[in-house]
Simulated scan of single mutants.
Amino acid sequence: MSLKEQITEDMKAAMRAKDSVRLGTIRLLTAAMKQKEVDERVELNDTLILGIIEKMVKQRKDSIAQFEAGGRQDLADAEKAELAILSAYMPAALSDEEVQAEIAAAIASTGAAGPQDMGKVMGVLKARLAGRADMTAVSAQVKAALTKA
């Protein structure tokens, strides 16, 4: 079953269970998916859908930080609930060791010699690690590895 089909089935289940939080979050996700399909005139595959989910997860994390800083715990809790639902669609995250191994392999395969080659390495890693690692953290690790090289 594709990710798109899984999301549709989960939406139907949330409707039957009258789970308004889950239903609302899944509807936001499907709206974002349809928006991308219309804007870019593409049929979404699992990789593109994971990109959308990853973006939504990042938005929720940013919102949680802002709400907690502003003393709005009620809104932060609502965002945390949405984050938990969206995170369920993400593949299992890689461990730090696995990420380091991927970085080393990408540096070796691209022949990167210094910080000027960061774009090449990140291009390779983005395809390999999509949805399985925080790309901001990966970028920092790549930068550190290339500065040592």
Rank of each mutant, 00 (worst) to 15 (best):
M1T: 13
S2H: 07
S2N: 15
S2R: 09
K4H: 12
I7L: 12
M11Y: 12
K12V: 13
A14I: 10
R16K: 13
A17R: 14
A17F: 03
D19K: 05
S20L: 14
V21E: 13
L23G: 01
G24T: 05
G24D: 07
T25P: 03
L29V: 05
T30N: 07
A32T: 06
M33N: 04
K34V: 11
K34R: 15
V38D: 15
R41L: 10
R41T: 11
V42H: 02
L44C: 05
T47A: 15
L48W: 01
I49Q: 01
I49T: 01
I49D: 00
L50V: 07
G51S: 08
I52F: 10
K55V: 07
K55T: 11
V57R: 12
K58E: 12
K58I: 04
K61A: 08
I64D: 09
A65F: 08
E68K: 14
A69T: 12
R72V: 04
Q73V: 11
D74T: 10
L75S: 10
L75Q: 10
A76Q: 06
A76F: 01
A78L: 12
K80T: 09
K80G: 00
A81D: 14
E82M: 10
A84Y: 07
A84V: 09
S87W: 00
Y89R: 05
Y89D: 04
M90A: 11
A92T: 14
S95V: 02
D96R: 12
E97M: 10
E98R: 12
E98L: 02
V99A: 06
Q100Y: 04
I103A: 03
A104D: 15
A106K: 06
A106V: 09
I107M: 03
I107Q: 05
T110P: 00
G111H: 02
A113G: 09
A113C: 05
A113P: 00
G114Y: 04
Q116Y: 08
D117T: 08
M118A: 15
G119P: 00
K120S: 11
K120A: 15
V121C: 01
V124W: 01
V124P: 00
K126S: 14
A127D: 12
R128Y: 05
L129Y: 09
L129K: 06
G131L: 11
G131N: 11
A133G: 10
A133K: 05
A133S: 13
M135W: 01
M135F: 12
A137N: 11
V138R: 05
Q141H: 07
K143L: 11
A144Y: 04
L146G: 03
K148I: 11
A149P: 00
